[in-house]
Design a protein around this nucleic acid. Structure first.
Lengths: 156, 156
DNA sequence: CACTGGCATTCACGGCGACGAAACAGATCA
DNA sequence: TGATCTGTTTCGTCGCCGTGAATGCCAGTG
C-alpha cells in the first residue's frame, strides 16, 4: 500500500478520508503550524522544509506498519492485521515454511520434512493438517491454495 | 504510562529493552545519524536539536496510542475505558505481568513465578486463578486467551 | 464423450493429555 | 460474624493428532 503525502493544514478533509480508509499517510506541516495529535498509528508528520532522508525514513516506517504479510512468533501465534490465532505445534511448523515462501508454491515433500523431520507419516496426514490449518486461517483472511501435483501456496 | 526519551544511537540497548516491554519511547537522533526504521507503533523519533513544541506533540501522540491498553495502579485497581475493577493481590500480580506483555504470550512458568515467588504451588492453582481473573475481566471487555502448551495472552 | 486412475478434500472416530470448572474448606480481613 | 481470598481435590471438557474410509475433482485415454 502506498504512503500518501499531504499538506497540513491545507488537506484537512483529505486526511479525514484517508483515516477513514485506514490508509497510511504523512502530513507535511507548515513551518509555523502546530502538528495534529492522533492515536492512529498509520499517520505520521514531518515539518517543512523537509529533509529528504528523514522523510524517506518515515515513509519506510509506515510501510512496515502496513506490511501485508502475516507473522508467526515463537509461541505459535499467527498475526495478520488486527487478528491473531494460536497454532498447534505441527500446524505452526507448516505455517513457518509456508510463510518463508509466502505467495509461492511449497512442495508436499518439503512440508512433510518440515512437519515430521524424523519419521515418514502416511500421505493423508499432511492433507488433514492442511485442512485443519485452512479452517484456522480462514477467519484471519488467509487461505492455502492447492497447486495440483506441485504443492500449496499461502496467500491472502 | 510515561513516554521515555532516549538518545540514538547511544541508548541502543535500552531501546531494545523498552521495545520488549512494549513501553512507549522517543529517540532523540543525533544531527547526522540516520533514524532507525521499525514497525513498532509505540516508537517515534525526532532529530536534534529538538523543537520543544514538536517534541511535546510527539509525546502526546504516543500517550494516546498507549491509552488503548488497560492500566493497573498500585492498589490493584484495573481500569479499561470507562470501567474498572478491584483485583485481589494474587490476581493483581498476575495481571501486572500480563499487562507488561499485553497482546503477547506469557508462559505458565512466568506467571507462577510472578504470583508465587517463593514456593512452588500445584499445577491447578494457576488454572483456578486464571479462571477467577477471567470472570473479573469479562465485564471490562478484556479476555485471557489460552495458547495451549505455551501460556496465556491478555487482549481485548 | 464417458471412463478411469490418481490425487485431493472432507468427515468421523478414539486416544491421550492439557486445561477448565465446580465444590469444599481453611485462612484472612474488615 | 460475615465476606472475601486462597489452595486443594475431583471430575468434565476440549484440543491435538493420527487413522480409515467416503466423496469429489481433475487429466488423460480410448
Amino acid at each position: 500500500m502506498e504512503v500518501e503525502l499531504l499538506n497540513w493544514p491545507a488537506d484537512t478533509d483529505r486526511r479525514a478520508r484517508l483515516q477513514e480508509l485506514a490508509h497510511p499517510r504523512i502530513l507535511l506541516v507548515e513551518p509555523d503550524e502546530p502538528a495534529p495529535i492522533t492515536a492512529d498509528p498509520l499517520e505520521d508528520w514531518i515539518r517543512l522544509p523537509v529533509d529528504q532522508h528523514d522523510l524517506q525514513t518515515r515513509v519506510e516506517t509506515l510501510r512496515r506498519r502496513t506490511k501485508v504479510e502475516p507473522t508467526l512468533d515463537g509461541d505459535g501465534v499467527l498475526r495478520y492485521g488486527a487478528n491473531w490465532t494460536a497454532l498447534p505445534p505441527i500446524e505452526a511448523a507448516l505455517t513457518e515454511l509456508l510463510l518463508a515462501r509466502f505467495g509461492r508454491v511449497v512442495s508436499r515433500e518439503a512440508l512433510l520434512r518440515q512437519g515430521w523431520p524424523d519419521d515418514e507419516p502416511t500421505r493423508n496426514v499432511l492433507d488433514v493438517h492442511v485442512l485443519r490449518l485452512r479452517r484456522r486461517l480462514e477467519p484471519l483472511g488467509l487461505s492455502i491454495r492447492t497447486v495440483r501435483k506441485r504443492g500449496y501456496v499461502l496467500s491472502v
